[in-house]
C-alpha cells in the first residue's frame, strides 16, 4: 500500500498547526479572563508556595509583570516540554500532570473501549440491516434511534436505578471498590470490569443508534452502485459481496463521522463520569471547575484537545488506508 509522502507531509503539517493553535489559545485564555482568582489564591497562601511552583504558576497565568508576553510564551512552551503543567489549587498544589495522568487511563479505557465497541457493533449491524433491506431486522433502527435520542444522564440514572439499586447486578459508582488500591491482581481487574460495565453499556446503547442509521443509509446508496451488481454477476458469495464490496465502501463516511463525533464524545464523557462518579478526566474537569482550579482546568483542556487531535489523526490514517482516492486527490 503506497501512500504518497506529500500526502503524509500535508496532513502532518495540518495537525501540527492545529496542535500549535490549540496550545497557543490555551496559553492566552487565562490571560483574558476577567477577575483574578489566582492572585487571590497566592495571597491567601503566601509563604506556603515553593519558589519554583510560584514561578511556574506565574508563567502559566501571565502574572509575571516584569516579562514580556513573548518571554512568557516561550517560558510556557519550555514548561510544557518539560511536562510541567503547573500546580493544582484544589489538590494541595500537587502537579497537574500527575493528577491528570492518574485520571486519564480510566477515561481512555472506559470511553475508548465503549466508543470503539459501539462503532464496530453499530457499523456491522447497520451493514447487515442495509443488506437485508425490508426484512424484520429493520425494527432495530427505530429502537436504537430511540435510545440515542433519550438524554444520556436520564438513561444513566435509569440504568443505575434498575440494574444497580434494584437488581444489584452492578455497582452504582466509582471505578473500583472502596478501600482497594490500583494493583494488577485478578480481583482488582474483576472490580474494574464490574464497575465499568454499566457506564460502558449505557455509552454503547446511547451511541449505537447513530452508527446503525448512518451505516444502513450508506449501504442503501452503495447497493445501487454498478460494482455491487458486477460483484454479484461475478458469482461471488453474498458474504463476500456484503463485506468486501458493499460495507467496505459504505463505511468510509462512517469514519468521517467518527472523527467528527470525537468532540461530542468528550462532552458525553463529562456527563457519564458525573452520573457514575467515575474518576476520569470528565469528573476531574467538573471538580476543577467547581473549585475554580484554573491550572487544573487549563491542563485538562490541553489534554482533551490533544486527545481529540490524536483521534482525528487515527481516523485520518484509517481513511487513507481504506480509501485510495483520498491519498491522491488531497495531496
Amino acid at each position: 500500500m503506497k501512500i504518497p509522502v506529500r500526502f503524509i507531509a500535508s496532513r502532518s503539517a495540518f495537525y501540527l498547526f492545529t496542535a500549535w493553535a490549540a496550545i497557543t489559545i490555551n496559553f492566552f485564555l487565562p490571560r483574558m479572563m476577567a477577575g483574578d482568582p489566582v492572585t487571590a489564591y497566592m495571597q491567601r497562601n503566601a509563604g506556603q508556595i515553593s519558589p519554583e511552583a510560584e514561578r511556574s504558576l506565574r508563567i502559566l497565568f501571565g502574572l509575571d509583570q516584569n516579562t514580556s508576553v513573548w518571554e512568557q510564551y516561550t517560558g510556557y512552551w519550555q514548561l510544557l516540554f518539560s511536562g510541567d503543567l503547573g500546580r493544582s489549587f484544589s489538590n494541595g498544589l500537587a502537579p497537574v500532570g500527575d493528577i491528570i495522568s492518574s485520571a486519564l487511563p480510566w477515561t481512555l479505557g472506559l470511553v475508548g473501549i465503549a466508543t470503539i465497541v459501539s462503532f464496530v457493533l453499530g457499523t456491522a449491524t447497520g451493514a447487515l440491516i442495509g443488506w437485508r433491506r425490508g426484512s424484520k431486522a429493520d425494527v432495530i433502527v427505530p429502537i436504537s434511534t430511540f435510545f440515542s435520542t433519550v438524554p444520556y444522564f436520564w438513561l444513566g440514572l435509569i440504568a443505575i436505578a434498575v440494574f444497580s439499586s434494584t437488581l444489584g447486578w452492578f455497582p452504582a459508582s466509582h471505578a473500583y471498590d472502596k478501600g482497594s488500591s490500583p494493583v494488577f491482581t485478578a480481583d482488582f481487574i474483576g472490580q474494574v470490569i464490574a464497575h465499568g460495565a454499566l457506564p460502558a453499556i449505557t455509552i454503547v446503547i446511547a451511541s449505537l443508534g447513530g452508527w446503525i442509521l448512518g451505516m444502513r443509509n450508506m449501504m442503501l446508496t452503495v447497493l445501487d452502485e454498478d460494482y455491487i451488481t458486477v460483484a454479484q454477476a461475478k458469482g461471488l458469495p453474498n458474504r463476500r459481496v456484503l463485506w468486501h464490496y458493499a460495507a467496505r465502501n459504505a463505511m468510509l463516511p462512517q469514519l468521517s463521522s467518527f472523527a467528527l463525533s470525537i468532540g461530542f464524545i468528550v462532552g458525553g464523557t463529562i456527563v457519564m463520569e458525573m452520573v457514575f462518579s467515575y474518576p476520569g478526566i470528565g469528573k476531574l474537569l467538573l471538580d476543577a471547575t467547581n473549585a475554580k482550579d484554573y491550572p487544573l482546568m487549563q491542563g485538562v483542556f490541553l489534554i482533551i484537545t490533544l486527545a481529540v487531535l490524536c483521534a482525528n489523526v487515527l481516523a485520518d490514517v484509517a481513511y487513507a488506508i481504506l480509501d485510495p482516492r483520498t491519498r491522491q486527490t488531497e495531496a
Binding site: Y227, V230, A231, H244, R248, N249, L252, R325
Partner: peptide, 8 residues
Amino acid sequence: MNALNPVT
C-alpha cells in the same frame, strides 16, 4: 468507473 470497486 462505477463497475469497478473504487477502493480495491
